[in-house]
């Protein structure tokens, strides 16, 4: 890219290369798994020199963990922002957060698979990152639902775990791009403990 746009600042190019390597490991691990993904595949896919990879990361696992971390942070930020957008209404906030999560997964299927499927079994450190990510989403949900003190303590853990499970099934079926279609049923699932009997969830713009 520097050959076509020699005026780009060095930091921009360096950041862009880091991004390309992280995208590459997401693509490759989601296709063939972590174990089978080799450094040679990554540098070829990212179109960077082997040395560039080692200048930026300690190796394959460091790159993998950095990519997971970066995606999880991004995911959490979009969900948090969407939740906050709806202000005082906690139900609308949760639906908006779910919608943002599903849109993110649909737009980044490989990165989503890396974080939500591959991370669990690739290495002990990546499994810990997955667990930490789950904890963050549980906390996010708890923040939106405080005031329901008569509900079980474990409810947000079960709800977040249930949403993750449905998304993992969808991703493993190779249908991450259609994740947004899950919004009505997932909204119903997540909100039903808070709404009581007979209330149907309005999922807004998506029919």
């Amino acid at each position: 890219m520097s050959s076509t746009r020699p005026e780009l600042p060095r930091e921009f190019v360096a950041g862009h290369k880091r991004r390309r390597m992280m995208d590459a490991i997401a693509e490759l691990t989601s296709e063939q798994g972590y174990e089978a993904t080799k450094i040679a595949d990554i540098v070829r896919q990212a179109a960077v020199a082997r040395k560039t990879l080692y200048d930026n990361f300690d190796g394959k696992e460091d790159l993998f963990l950095s990519a997971i971390n970066s995606t999880m942070t991004e995911m959490r930020v979009v969900v948090e922002e969407a939740c906050a957008h709806d202000g005082a209404d906690p139900e609308a906030g949760i639906v908006a957060g779910l919608e943002a999560l599903l849109d993110f997964i649909a737009a980044h299927p490989a990165a989503a698979r890396m974080c939500m499927v591959e991370a669990i079994s690739a290495t002990p450190s990546s499994a810990r990152l997955y667990d930490a990510g789950m904890r963050e989403f549980v906390k996010l949900l708890q923040k939106r639902t405080t005031g329901n003190s008569d509900l079980p303590d474990t409810i947000e853990e079960s709800l977040a775990g249930g949403v993750a499970w449905i998304l993992q099934l969808q991703i493993r079926r190779g249908e991450a791009e259609r994740a947004a279609e899950l919004l009505p049923e997932l909204s119903q699932f997540v909100l039903s403990p808070y709404l009581g009997v007979g209330k149907v969830v309005d999922t807004g713009r998506r029919k």
Binding site: D131, E157, I166, F189
Partner: peptide, 18 residues
């Protein structure tokens, strides 16, 4: 819907695992 029960069972399994 079956997906709801999948979420319930998967959610309980995940919570217990944690």
């Amino acid at each position: 819907p079956e997906a709801t029960d999948e979420a319930v069972v998967g959610g309980i399994a995940s919570m217990l695992g944690r």
